[in-house]
Design a protein around this nucleic acid. Structure first.
Lengths: 408, 408
DNA sequence: TCATCTTTTAAAATATTTTTTAAAAGTATT
DNA sequence: AATACTTTTAAAAAATATTTTAAAAGATGA
């Protein structure tokens, strides 16, 4: 059950004519979604539909309640134009971000406003209908609370870790129990379409639509938390590879003489760079007597996790910063390979480690200076995400809009 | 001067209507180019233009001489359909492949038939108008010989090594003297449009349109000759990166403890794998007394180059094969990185070393088994190109058709 | 072998879209 | 404040495409 943009009930005429009209409606709505606000004349220019026809289509959409009159704009030398915008409350989009231990549900209106955001910690992911039942319950709670019926939901976007066949809405790693595929399964339970994809890719989409990748053509989005994920945007599009396996950046070869990775191979990037490795190295150092802010917690028998290490770094803990620097050098080596192969405009660092800001960006940049061909690497910006924890969630919204409105 | 698909003289009406008609003509011609042969009914199905209109447009195109009646097709249960095809001799495409020491000029008709192919050895590339004057002369010779006027040339495609801004037709590495950009410069001299791009990318386009990448979505095309080039097809499209630098596969890091590369960095793939390295290693071995078919030539004071090494390998020379095996292992390591990042459907080995066939494919596959995650690498086929020396040339044809007919 | 069913093409009727023309509502300038 | 100039919108006229209907040509099966 893929989402569609349709007003079938309202339109008469033959099949072909209806389709054409639908396409014209979609063009107009999608343009208004992107610009927020436009006059008839601007729509004409963009849509290449004639002015009288645009006027009549906009009229229809006003009648349906899809569009709103948005006052009168500034003139540039003549009659002041009437402006139109999408009715933000005409429909809503549900965004769901499933993580191993945390569930986040968001509700967006058609002006991309976050109406509601609910985060459920210790909502442990398990492969059972019990889990999806709870999930569906939580989603319905959010909708009920805002008094939104299923027919008012344009579609739901879902971000989930692991292997995904996005086209058919099938998850191979988690929630695999549903025979018809996770997307269809949830869709049936919920009563509206569900669009899903892998978390790293959703983060990339989020950055492309609402973050620092906006307007960029070729961007790589790193998800640096306990492990390493990579979402790839090439030629303005999300790239997934033949089977949706693209982006296994954590398992490219960095050190042929290195340790064995959990994947079985020797010297993968993830044996040298990841939140887990950082935490391990910090713990080992402290056990060996290294001075650090984290010593006290350790002495109290608390286990130190990534959250604490990041906090220590941001508090200027020299030892933790040293460990991050070491790690970032390897990360830089890995990124050099990406840059040489893909010549991206920008690399965005996201995930928990992005919260260290300059503490990770600066050593990565240093590593690029050292290991990359300058001609190529000087074309690539390296920045931290500013979407904090919401990149994937925003990505689900963008994914829904892409499907429904076929935004570029 | 970008190529356009136009029959302006023949069409009346207002600007907008003319444009629409042009677009409809283009749709039909492009469909016939791809299928070779189709009935009105098939065009209707594909173009989503109504049957009476398609009939009238095809009529126009027959009148212009663009299309030909191609007899009557097989019925599938009713009246036998009239078939139409592009008039192969309506226009021609010139394809030019510039290499450092060799120039190849080809002439194609609109059915992709190679009408003429001229190869000029020792046609050394130099950055001067003298070179382009000679080039233009050779092209005109070929056209004159076949009695083809400039107006009968749809456009010319050009493949050239080095850095290229394909969009604006500017070459940054070779033939940089022309102020208006190489494409425009040649265009003015020749009297028809010129479309140009980098040689590795043209090889990839050639494979996509006419070689083993046909119908595939994500394919990597290696150009293995003296150096290493990589042409990348992702989501069915050629990928160039932000500045057209994408595909610097030869300079990804393989061995942090390795030799210094000519690019300045340590341990690049090209310090371990390339035609040059293979030739060097073979020569060194023979100097040290290694038995080989190549010993005789060496003793006679002839310098052994890549062509000879490839021949020796194909004759079963054990030493040369050993050296190739060693090299292929490194190449495999590099390809693992590509596979993990991009999850391609297929990797095509082209260039001079592709002529060793199984001698290179088998050890590369072995290396993939060893170094790559099976789940991902088992999805990727590794094959040798079967376009021999013409991949880039065929790519220029495809590039022209892409520009003019906007083939998928 | 004839009647029925398909598919393809053509022509007439209908519907839609665009172009043209003009009016309305502003701005800028003298 | 009046005039000239723009831009935006609306309505009528013209052009264009689509649907419907029908005819032509061949396939299939009793």
């Amino acid at each position: 059950m893929r989402p569609e943009f349709k007003y079938e009930k309202e339109i008469a005429g033959t099949a072909n004519a209806r389709n054409r009209k639908q396409e014209q409606y979609r063009k107009i709505v999608s343009f208004l979604y992107e610009t927020g606000n436009a006059s008839i004349a601007e729509i004409v220019k963009h849509s290449k539909i004639s002015q009288p026809l645009v006027a009549s289509l906009v009229d229809d959409l006003l009648g349906f309640g899809v569009l709103l009159d948005n006052g009168i704009g500034e003139s540039i030398g003549g009659r002041r134009p009437n402006l139109y915008c999408i009715n933000p409350a005409y429909q809503y989009v549900v965004g769901v971000d499933i993580n191993l231990h945390t569930l986040t549900i968001a509700l967006f209106d058609l002006s991309n406003q976050l109406i509601r955001r609910e985060e459920y910690k210790n909502f442990d992911l398990e492969n059972s209908s019990a889990y999806t039942d709870k999930l569906v319950g939580k989603i319905n709670d959010v909708l009920n609370e805002k008094n939104i019926s299923t027919s008012q939901v344009l579609a739901m976007g879902l971000s989930i870790p692991g292997l995904i066949d996005a086209k058919n809405g099938v998850s191979f790693t988690h929630l695999t129990f549903a025979e018809q595929g996770l997307g269809n399964y949830l869709s049936e339970k919920l009563g509206f379409s569900v669009v899903l994809d892998n978390d790293a890719r959703m983060m990339a989409l989020g950055e492309k639509a609402f973050g620092k990748a906006k307007g960029k053509k070729d961007v790589l989005c790193l998800n640096l938390s306990n492990r390493i994920g990579l979402g790839i945007i090439l030629n303005e599009q999300l790239y997934s590879g033949k089977n949706g396996f693209a982006g296994e950046f954590g398992h490219i070869l960095i050190d042929p003489e290195g340790e064995q990775c959990y994947c079985g191979k020797i010297g993968c990037l993830e044996t040298l760079t990841s939140g887990e490795i950082l935490v391990r190295n910090v713990n080992e150092g402290i056990e060996k007597g290294q001075a650090s802010f984290l010593r006290q917690a350790k002495d109290e028998g608390k286990s130190i996790d990534l959250r604490e290490v990041v906090a220590a770094i941001n508090n200027g803990d020299q030892f933790a910063i040293d460990q991050l620097n070491k790690m970032s050098d390897y990360l830089g080596k890995g990124l050099v390979t990406l840059i040489h192969l893909l010549n991206p405009e920008m690399i965005i660092i996201g995930g928990r480690l992005a919260q260290t800001g300059k503490y990770i960006v600066d050593p990565v940049r240093m590593a690029l200076n050292k290991y990359a061909m300058d001609r190529i690497s000087s074309e690539t910006e390296v920045v931290c995400s500013d979407l904090i924890d919401d990149a994937a969630l925003m990505g689900t919204l963008s994914n829904v809009m892409k499907e429904v409105l076929r935004i570029s």
